[in-house]
Amino acid sequence: MLQVENISINYGVCAVAADISFALEAGKIFVLLGANGAGKTTLLKSLNGALPVSAGEIWLDGKLIENYSRQEIARKITVIAQETETKFPVSVAEFVLSGRFAHGAAFGWETERDLRIALDCLERCDLKNYENRSMNQLSGGERQRVVLARALATEAKILLLDEPTANLDLAHQSLLFRLIKERCETNAASAIVITHDLNLASEFADEIILLKDGRISAKGEPRTVLTKENLQKVFDVNVLLDENPISKKSRVTTIY
């Protein structure tokens, strides 16, 4: 679906990401891990063309990403960015329906189908009957879920999520990951997720990409990437590794 070949990204003269390659296949969840400033957000932004790459190529469904229009990209790739601010009093419904923009005629109005999809996505995100509320009156966690609902409403096959769990309580964190997993399994979609929660990564990732100073430091299944040495190298912390007795996945505990 998305193929990244040797890309580098510069801010001015300063290289933020260098020589990164990976291939995202349908149905997979990739998790990007790395310390603050490792280049995770920058890399994610480049994947839908929001940041130009200074070297390398990004292929989307067999075509170079720069040969798509914004509307075509938005139909294939959706984004949850770290911050979304609204100055005008936009309603939750209007916000989620903006996710349907790429599917409509620019002049026109949303169709009944757009509306049905938007309401359905709100309900999945545990936001039933929120449609008439104003975005400015929501709590941080509620806003975050509205942002997720908008991303799901695009029906895009690739989801790029930048710390989607930042404001969410425990129940909604796992709701979010279940929704993403379900989207990937039933719709042959795939996701790239940035998070700082190593255990969420271990539970939900098909593959983990460990970034250090803008380069891929390790890549592969969670069990092979989440090792004492790797985590020591990338995060500079000591960890205890064992197994979650229920899911049988690696469990990481920081040693303070």
Partner: peptide
């Protein structure tokens, strides 16, 4: 979409 945010508008298909 621009009213919500320029980055958002870009990500969701506005030129």
């Amino acid at each position: 979409l621009m009213m919500i945010g320029e980055r958002d508008a870009f990500d969701f298909g506005v030129e």
